[in-house]
Write a protein that binds this DNA or RNA. Structure first.
Lengths: 199, 199
DNA sequence: GTCTATACCCCGATAGAC
DNA sequence: GTCTATCGGGGTATAGAC
């Protein structure tokens, strides 16, 4: 039994039964050892939990990196949005933990390594948007602003769905995600009207 | 000491120290009684927690209802978006609990009363959108679709901010919320381009 | 309606033997 | 590197006296 066995069991336990199920005693039992043995590989429960969160960011980044295979800015843009959705639907518990408040893991703030991973995910969207602005597909706005707007919409819609607020199956939600994304990108106002809304 | 005293203390405790601090022993200690006394007013801890969640929806609905005071569809629309933001910033912990997964409270599904309150909040946005479509401020799309898109964006942006991902103070965030809302409503694509994105 | 006492669960973490 | 034993804490909930 080594550090990796503990890590794998912790991920499995978290995905299956939630974060509160990831306890030293429970982990040890499932691994066929006793709790004190775990402390030879991890200094504390907190250290294990942070490894699980880190894994969530790694998986998410992996999906987004796959989107780089697109051959045009537009296709890479589409693949990034699609990859984010795929990650959330394939790993809802990992998606959830990415946005969990720090106190969930008994720490006051995230270590630098996790903050960096989070920033990397944001940067990925950022680059896709910048490309699309560059080739004239999107308006010449600040790429970071546009990226934030798109991220907010995607994250909001996904978390509303995962929370169970929408009465639909996964296939239906995929369609809703695309249609709603279209509305965000192309606007819902009638041009020349509603000039001062939200201004 | 009556049921209302327990409820008030539970809300205070939740807002100040989080849901895990709301235990029967802790509540009793803060109220100057012993734990078993609480069971004369509440059957279980779970029943107390659900009352706290219910309060969150009530407060949110209260803010949105205040937006009805606007004199035009556009103003009521703006006030609804503003009220939602005000609620989230004034009561971040109550905002958080509205979207918490059910297992947080030790229940498998929300009771009907809470589902209804949630639906009421959604209906409020829905009505504001329908009005704006009616007077030609928004495109003649399905009001529920448009409402969901706006809700997703607002919720996503707020939860990203409350999660601490954005390095800015509250005043700055209010501006970002408005600007991002503008982009969602008016679109970010260059008309006639990006026809097939997200389609 | 509140108390004491209690049954019975959970947890993180450490000391020291092997 | 794993064990047993243990410290010291948390929790829900009930029984029965007052």
């Amino acid at each position: 039994m080594d550090r990796n066995d503990i890590f794998n069991q912790a991920c499995e336990l978290y995905v299956g039964e939630g974060i509160e199920a990831v306890s030293m005693r429970r982990l040890a039992r499932d691994l066929g050892v006793t709790a004190p043995a775990l402390y030879k590989h991890y200094a504390s429960r907190e250290e294990i939990l942070l490894d699980v969160v880190s894994e969530a960011y790694r998986l998410c980044g992996e999906q987004l990196t796959g989107g780089l295979l697109g051959s045009t800015p537009e296709e890479r843009f589409r693949l990034a949005g699609e990859g984010y959705l795929n990650f959330a639907l394939a790993h809802p518990k990992f998606y959830e933990v990415m946005y969990a408040p720090t106190h969930t893991f008994g720490v006051a703030s995230y270590p630098e390594e996790l903050t960096a991973r989070m920033a990397g995910v944001g940067q990925s969207f950022n680059d896709r948007v910048r490309e699309c602005i560059g080739v004239g597909l999107l308006q010449p706005l600040d790429a970071q602003d546009v990226s934030l707007t798109l991220w907010a919409h995607a994250h909001g819609l996904i978390s509303i769905y995962l929370r169970g607020c929408l009465q639909m199956d996964e296939a239906m939600f995929r369609q809703v995600y695309h249609e709603s994304g279209w509305r965000v990108i192309h606007g819902m106002a009638i041009p020349q009207h509603m000039a001062q809304v939200s201004a």
